[in-house]
Amino acid sequence: LEAKFDDSTIFKKIIDSFKDSVSQINFMCSESGIEAQAIDDSRVLLVSLSIPPSCFETYRCDRPTTVGVYLSSLSKLLKSASSSATLTLYVEDQPDELLLLFEESKASKSMEYKMKLVDITADMLEVDSDMKSDVSVEMSGVEFTKIVRDLTQLSDSFTVSVGKDGIVFSVDGETASGKVLLQPKEDLANPENNLSISMTKTIDLSFASKYLLDIIKASTLSNMISLKFSEETPALFEFKMEKGGGIGFYLAPKYDE
């Protein structure tokens, strides 16, 4: 594998967006890009990552390779990332290490790190990425992040309801409750403020607040978040990157007994 990002902070943002959710991951590298799936220890949150060749300045992968890493170690190396540096990832045919090469042509500086790979035996789940959903919402990632931060302070459960009035985020804590209603809107001047809802059924689902606080860490990857809900499947919170690919978080809901 030889894969070069023209801006090393892209890879840092991707890794930082889920390093607190899962501790280790297998990157599956192939000619169609880098993909990964990992489940958190409690098996409630599943992270699904896709970095297609379009995200790289150059991308080459001669044969499918699995690259297993501890995210805390990788994240330490990526503290060197800066927007003026490129980052190339190298993995040999018989991989036992990942090489990261940062290059700043303006500063005539290059930095090289090597990281030992780890054998990770991870359960893979058959998650349907084209899952049918009762409700799809596209909205501002900044808005969603603010709502999650504000409301999760009040309760460890966070409820999302979608009906004819719009989308309602609510919490009902021991000492306080809160509710935010958003209606569809189109802002032609600032499309990142758009909110669209398509729905075949109303939904009313609850999630544990702590996972939502992890999910919003990925909001640095995209201006928009796409939400998919259905009564029978985990919800999908997805941040799509400008150059293709992105990160999706599948979150299992909480139900009444």
């Binding site: 893979m124 058959e126 609850s206 985990p234 299992a252 009444d256 007994e257």
Partner: peptide, 14 residues
């Protein structure tokens, strides 16, 4: 009180 479901309640292992 609500019960937290897990991914294994919904998806099969590959």
């Amino acid at each position: 009180e609500k019960t937290q479901f897990t991914m294994d309640d919904f998806y099969e292992l590959i």
